[in-house]
């Protein structure tokens, strides 16, 4: 990410970073610059809501009530409205997630090819349950609907990296690779 990011793409950065700064200000520095660029691309402020929530989540790691209020202030929307929209979309974490958000596709394409075994392996090795964060704060494993790469089952996305053709026996290696 650089200061020179083109306005056309400033809002299209759905990013889940390993490093999360839940208390970081919204927005400053390069993020302030991106925020302002986003606003130039739409005829009204409301339309910037999804990009700005993505931006906030990139910084803070999740969409907390404080984030919702701040985003509402920035875009002249009520907190209830922002909460309503944020809760409609599955990518906005309304609760904190681990350093690595592991999303295992269980869509029909992957399910036909035993995606559940991959998901179970992740849960077993991270010692978590679906949606819960491991005690060390490192992992949150969730099952997600079709990630749209059905020819490469099972598809797993960790933060913003996509892994294709993941087999249950490869899960351990994948987890090691993360660290």
């Amino acid at each position: 990410m650089s200061d020179a990011m083109h306005p056309a793409i400033a809002g299209a950065q759905p990013s889940q970073r390993a490093e999360k700064r839940p208390e970081a200000p919204l927005f400053e520095g390069a993020y302030q610059d991106r925020f302002e660029k986003i606003l130039t691309r739409y005829p009204d402020k409301r339309a910037a809501l999804l990009p700005v929530l993505h931006l906030a989540q990139e910084v803070r790691g999740w969409v907390s009530p404080q984030t919702i209020r701040r985003v509402g202030e920035l875009l002249d929307l009520t907190p209830a409205y922002v909460r309503s929209v944020a809760s409609f979309y599955t990518m906005f974490n309304l609760r904190p997630v681990g350093k690595y958000l592991i999303q295992v596709c269980v869509g029909i394409g992957c399910d036909l090819c035993r995606a559940e075994e991959v998901a179970e392996k992740f849960l077993e090795l991270t010692r978590t349950r679906i949606g819960e964060t491991s005690e060390d704060g490192k992992y949150t494993v969730i099952e997600v609907e079709c990630l749209g790469a059905c020819a490469f089952p099972t598809v797993v996305q960790v933060n913003d990296k996509v892994y294709e053709n993941v087999k249950a026996e490869e899960v351990e290696g994948l987890l090691k690779e993360l660290d």
């Binding site: 793409i9 299209a12 739409y42 929530l53 993505h54 409609f88 979309y89 599955t90 990518m91 906005f92």
Partner: peptide
Amino acid sequence: DLTVHAGAGAY
């Protein structure tokens, strides 16, 4: 002008 707008998880 062309703007890339990313969704956020909704079929």
